[in-house]
Amino acid sequence: MTSNKVAFVGAGATLLWVAIWAWLTREGGPVSELFFPSPGDVLDRLIMFWSRPYIGSTLMGHILSSLSIVLAGWVLGGIVGVPLGIAMAWWTRLKWIVFPIFQLIRPVPPLAWIPLTLLWIGIGDAARIFVVFIAALVPWVMNSMHAVYSVDKLLIDAGRTLGANDRKILTRIVIRSAIPTLLAGARIALGNAWTTLVAAELLAATAGLGYVALNASRMLDTDVLVVAMLLIGLLGVMLSALMGLAARMFAPWVKNDRNGG
C-alpha cells in the first residue's frame, strides 16, 4: 500500500472505533457512564481542564510534569547507558565486570525500585527521575552493546586495510554503523521510560498524568480517568513517532520501512 492509502485507512479505522465507542456509551446504551464515559463527556473534560486546574495544575501542567521527568530519566539513561554499552562490547573484560549486575537488574521491574528510592531520596521529582532512569538504562545499555556486536567484522577489516587506527575504527566505522540499532534502543528505552513513569506516578507523585488518573479513580471520576489514560496513550504514540523521525534523520541510509513510523 502507498503511504497515502495507509493514512486513509488508518484515519477511517480511528473514526470507526470512536463511532463504536460512542454507540456503546450512548445514553441508555449497553455501557453505563459510571463505568465508561462517552466520547463527548471525555472531550468536555479535556477542554474544561485544559484551562482550569485539576488537583494543583492544568492538564498541560500535568503533561509537562510527566514529559520533563521522562525526558530527564531517559536522557540520563542514555548518557550513562550508551557509552557503557559500547565500552562493554569493545572491552570484553569490562563486560564481564558489569554484566553480572545487569543480568540481575534486568528481570526486576523498575517499579520495584520505588520503595528503596523513597527511602533514599523521598517522594520528589528526583525519585521518579531515578526510577525512570533505571527503566531506560537497561534497554539503552543492551542495545548499545548489541549495536556494536552486530557490526560486521568485515567492515573493521576493510577499515584496517584502508589505514584506520583503532580509535578511527571505533568512532567512524563501529559507532556509525551501529547508529540504527542505537536508535532502536533509544526508542525502546523511551517507551519503557514512559510506561514506568506513569506507573510511578500512580504510587508516588504530586503531579503528572498518572497522578491525575489515580485521583480521578479515587473520586470515581471516570471522565477524567479516561482523559488521563487517553493522553497517556497519545503521548506515548507521539514519543514513538518522534523517535521514528529521529531515526530517519540520523540514519538516512537505512531503508524507511525499518525505521518505522
Binding site: D157, A158, G159, A164, K168, S177
Partner: peptide
C-alpha cells in the same frame, strides 16, 4: 595498511557512508 589494498568478495562498503565518503575514507585516514 593502504599499501596492500583489499577488495573483498562481499564488498565490505561502509553502510553509513555515501559513495563519495566510502571512496575518500582511506585518504582521510
Amino acid at each position: 595498511g593502504p599499501q596492500r589494498s583489499v577488495v573483498f568478495q562481499k564488498f565490505a562498503l561502509f553502510p553509513s557512508e555515501t559513495v563519495a565518503q566510502n571512496i575518500k575514507f582511506g585518504l582521510q585516514m
